[in-house]
Design a protein around this nucleic acid. Structure first.
Length: 737
DNA sequence: CGGTAGAATATTTTT
DNA sequence: TATTCTACCG
């Protein structure tokens, strides 16, 4: 997919801005790289240039957004330099590079180098356990929410100790009926530490702490990393930025590359201000703007520009294309999601029988669940497609089960792994027993494994039958632990046989199990491949799987690509279809309530449009099947923002046969009717930023308008009463300005 | 303790 | 709708 791009660029000579950015090696550098501006080439050429002027590969630190990008770049740099030391560049994601550093320095942060990594599922389960243990009301303490708040705090470098001193945050918790948040947070961190486990965020914040608290260690890395380069800087968070500041402090050779208009990961802590404020934080920053788009037609660039102009927080730049003007962008309205999938498939079907390949086309959507309707349409026409993302191979239950055993072999104290498999396959150790063991472990301040593997087990009130089952389990684990230095393929074989996972799946008639066994077979294959590599220890295998979950597809088959817009970042296709442009879906429900989030959704659409090289098609449906029922939809507000000079508005075809569609029309009409009635209650004269006076609360400014649940609500910041949400139907107020 | 049926909940996005 | 969680009975 990116081949088109590289070919196109390679045939061009570098422009003056690109050359300047490549050659400016000393001091802080910021490269603002618009979509399709040859960013990857500039990065690879820049690193190649560094090596050419005599910088050692091991003195270069290059951080990328995905491991896949890192691998590709290393390969390209190698192609340019033809220097085998290229492979010694420290290039990878923040997470994988820092995991490597932390393993080397584990003792300093109270861990051992065999620590294992909790993924989000592990983390949420742990939070859920803690909430249960504290007997907290589940209505107010939702494990997912609590974990996301923990993650947010960590990414903003607010550990439990700092949190405790932060009165505003504590007050916020009280207000939200979550006064025990800090207690959960503290316990969570304690249990991770005790289990010798790090979660994704720990990989960042522990590195940050390591450097803060141990100047001599920091110094050695400062000396090593003389040249630092960060790709996709717009999507870094505070923790990442802080680490870079520390490592880069000595040499100041920090080069950040990114595009603020493509910042789309704030939900996981990315802070767009890192890039917006870079020039203020570092001194003597040299800034380069890559504004020429080599990828897309002028029409596509113009539409994208007209949209992003609505964002206030951005770095000024003018993206332009000198390619063909190209076709206008298509905008199509559909009756419902099914018709959307059907017609898009029809359009693509026609194009691939004439002059395009399947791989020229990509369908992008906001949420994974939208893929279903599209799939149906494509399948009906027999068009091959591939869905990217969804739950990855390594997140499947059967794989995670086996991985849990493997993690335990490496780190006996990985409690989440142990709890996962202590009774899988079932061996008569149920929840009551597990809870008793956990209580004892808590009492003795030990992990579950330490408790099982000690005389403490004798002090637990359980029947001797149960106790024997635990002992049997313990002995089986100990046998497995012996495998630690075996070939990993052999280890996995031992695990799947000794534990009885394979025989359980074989004997159980559930038809799903066939697939599961096949997946386990896949795991065997990847282990075999891995065991042929240089550093094929079990811990490296687990590490790689924990941090690099992408599985490469090996077949070169032709297919249409289906993916979320987030996943399309960095890619490009001649033909791009962006579906489901409806309020509440794109922009998402939640983001419609906040200006900042809305700006991010707008950037997301900007990213989507700029994936397209020749032709972009936008679409929306008036009715959409969601959560098991039909809901009425209205076209996305973004569609009112784009410049229609560059858009071709297509009406739905008249003779399209809707009788095939099995959607209960009566239901449909009713929904629309209700909605219409409600609409009449909407006040059209209110706007964000207006000053109003309320008969009780006095003067205030409208800071938000929300119509998401059918009622028009305004959020008003009152001078004397603070922020209030009012229903415009009932509230008595007058507009002043 | 184990299995299952029915309830509850979710749809943003992921290293 | 699809998935995951909880409560209850054997």
């Amino acid at each position: 997919m990116s081949n088109n791009h590289s070919n196109q660029i390679k045939s061009q000579t570098l422009n003056s801005q690109q050359i300047a950015a490549i050659q400016c090696t000393e001091g802080p550098v910021m490269i603002i790289a618009g979509p399709g501006s040859g960013k990857t080439r500039v990065i690879t050429e820049r690193i190649a240039h560094l090596m050419k002027i005599g910088v050692n590969a091991e003195n270069i630190l290059a951080l990328t957004f995905t491991n896949k990008a890192a691998k590709e770049m290393v390969k390209r740099i190698h192609d340019i330099t033809n220097n085998h030391t290229t492979f010694e560049i420290w290039m990878g994601t923040f997470h994988s590079i820092f995991a490597r550093i932390l393993r080397a320095e584990a003792a300093t942060i109270g861990h051992t180098s065999n620590f294992t990594i909790y993924d989000n599922e592990d983390s949420v389960k742990l939070v859920r356990q803690i909430i249960n243990d504290f007997n907290l009301d589940k209505e107010f303490y939702d494990a997912k929410y609590i974990f996301s708040r923990i993650s947010f705090m960590k990414n903003n470098l607010l550990g439990p100790i700092k949190y405790e001193k932060h009165l505003e945050l504590l007050e916020e918790d009280n207000r939200k009926n979550k006064p025990e948040f800090l207690k959960i947070y503290t316990k969570y961190c304690m249990l991770c530490q005790q289990s010798n486990c790090l979660d994704f965020d720990d990989l960042l914040i522990k590195t940050n702490e390591l450097f803060l608290q141990h100047p001599q260690i920091l110094q050695s890395y400062q000396n090593q990393f003389q040249y630092i380069l960060i790709d996709e800087y717009q999507d870094t968070n505070k923790a990442q930025d802080s680490i870079i500041k520390q490592i880069g402090f000595k040499h100041q050779n920090v080069c950040v590359v990114g595009d603020d208009s493509q910042s789309i990961y704030s939900f996981r802590g990315a802070n767009i201000n890192n890039i917006l404020n870079f020039k203020k934080v570092y001194t003597n920053v040299k800034e380069f703007k890559l504004e020429r788009n080599y990828r897309s037609t002028q029409n596509i660039v113009n539409v994208a520009n007209s949209l992003i102009a609505y964002n206030k927080h951005k770095i000024e730049k003018t993206i332009f294309s000198e390619n063909q003007v190209g076709e206008k962008i298509n905008l199509i309205e559909f009756k419902n999601g099914r018709e959307e999938g059907d017609k898009i498939a029809l359009i693509i079907g026609n194009l691939i029988t004439t002059h395009t390949k399947k791989s020229d086309h990509a369908i992008l959507y906001r949420t994974n669940s939208q893929s279903k309707m599209i799939e149906d349409g494509l399948r009906k026409r027999g068009i091959d497609y591939k869905i990217f993302g969804g739950l990855s191979f390594y997140q499947r239950k059967e794989i995670k089960d086996i991985m849990a055993y493997l993690k335990l072999i490496v780190n006996h104290n990985d409690t989440q792994a142990l709890i996962r498999i202590i009774n899988y396959p079932t061996r008569g150790i149920g929840t009551t027993t597990i809870n008793k063991i956990r209580d004892k472990a808590e009492e003795e301040n030990k992990t579950i494994w330490e408790t099982i593997d000690s005389t403490h087990l004798d002090n637990i009130k359980i029947t001797s039958a149960t106790k024997n089952k635990i002992l049997e389990f313990k002995n089986m684990l100990k046998e497995l632990f012996e495998c630690i230095n075996h070939n990993i393929f052999d280890t996995i074989e031992q695990v799947s046989e000794k534990t009885g996972i394979i025989s359980k799946l074989k004997n159980d008639p559930n038809p799903e199990n066939h697939n599961r066994l096949e997946n386990i077979g896949e795991l065997f294959n990847s282990a075999k491949l891995f065991s042929m590599k240089k550093n094929s220890s079990l811990i490296n295998f687990i590490n790689e799987i924990s941090l690099d979950e992408q599985v490469e597809s090996k077949n070169n088959k032709e297919y249409i690509s289906l993916m979320t817009i987030h996943q399309s970042k960095g890619l490009e296709y001649p033909y791009v279809y962006i579906v489901g442009l409806e309020n509440g879906l794109f922009p998402s429900q939640k983001s419609m309530k906040q200006q900042i989030l809305l700006e991010e959704e707008r950037r997301l659409l900007y990213v989507a449009i700029t994936r397209g090289a020749q032709k972009v098609t936008l679409s929306y449906a008036l009715n959409r099947f969601r959560f098991g029922s039909i809901t009425q939809a209205e076209k996305s507000l973004f569609l009112d923002e784009i410049n229609y000079l560059f858009v071709n508005k297509l009406r739905k075809q008249k003779n399209y046969n809707t009788s095939k569609l099995k959607i209960p029309v009566i239901n449909n009409q009713r929904l629309i009717k209700i909605k219409k009635d409600e609409r009449e209650n909407y006040r059209k004269d209110i706007k964000i930023g207006l000053i109003i006076t309320h008969n009780i609360f006095g003067k205030g400014e409208i800071i938000n308008i929300d119509i998401s649940d059918g009622n028009q609500k305004i959020t008003v910041n009152f001078i004397d009463y603070g922020t209030k949400i009012l229903l415009t139907k009932f509230a008595k107020f007058k507009i002043i300005t």
